[in-house]
Design a protein around this nucleic acid. Structure first.
Lengths: 144, 144
DNA sequence: GTTGGTGCAAATGATTTGCAAAAGG
DNA sequence: CCTTTTGCAAATCATTTGCACCAAC
């Protein structure tokens, strides 16, 4: 509710129109607290608003991305996953074997960004990284 | 030629059959010295071997990946890009605006991998990273 | 009123898959 | 021979797009 007001204000301020679909997509992402696929967002949104097409989800998320309100990440699955991007930047360690995922604090990559910026003038977007590998459990469990 | 012998030996050692298609895909990747899409690999291979289907390319690259001879990376384009993975690990800085790409030395990420391994027991695969952002030229050229 | 957003349905396009024929060991 | 690989063609499936209609402003 308060959230919706805030989202509306941001959209309006960016010269974007405020529609119920957009507010709902934003609200769903904001309160999910996790990564959602386009299909999942659609399901959640439809629970509160009858007919919303997936294409609208994609178009809306694309716009939210432009406003830096959402991020899209390939987490190794079949589809892109979207997430509300307010709050602290963070990263993910994703196990290639068991798919387990754990959050990695932003400071693990801040140094890299600084160094790359200093050395190459490259402004790295290290807001949301997916790092693949093998987790502790899988390493201890399986042989290798 | 010498390369083909070596590739054949590796395949055989892994219990994989040696076929001209596989040797060619490996050779193309090895000598490309850059990232290739499945379609590009197909084109190169067909230049030397008449009829090779894209599905064979995909199946072969998948197998090479399993043997750690090739890597697949999403570089932000429409399709996956494959690369021969022998030689020094390296990473890429990819400009989201102009698509320019520059190589980043492996040591930029080695520290991260060590730290993650120490702190979480997570064996990060930082063999081939794609870091997106804005390059110096685009930052100086355009306003932001 | 204008402009931009939405739903629908159809297109896109890379990757995958079933299967019979062909090749590897 | 027996098994794996291949080419072909068809299927998948997430994402995109054209378009007529409707909603913001």
């Amino acid at each position: 509710m308060a959230c919706e007001q805030e989202t509306a204000a941001i959209l309006r301020g960016a010269g974007q129109r405020v529609t119920p679909q957009r507010l709902l997509v934003a609200a769903v992402l904001r309160h999910a607290g996790r990564h959602l696929s386009a299909a999942e967002i659609a399901r959640e949104v439809r629970a509160r608003y009858p007919v919303v097409d997936v294409s609208t989800i994609y178009r809306t998320v694309e716009m939210l991305k432009g406003l830096h309100l959402a991020t899209a990440t390939d987490m190794g699955g079949d589809d892109l996953l979207f997430e509300w991007s307010a709050g602290e930047a963070h990263h993910h360690l994703i196990c290639s074997r068991c798919r387990a995922m754990q959050v990695l604090d932003r400071d693990y990559l801040d140094g890299l960004a600084e160094r790359v910026g200093r050395d190459f003038g490259f402004q790295a977007d290290v807001h949301h990284f997916a790092i693949f590998g093998v987790c502790r459990d899988c390493r201890e469990g399986a042989g290798a």
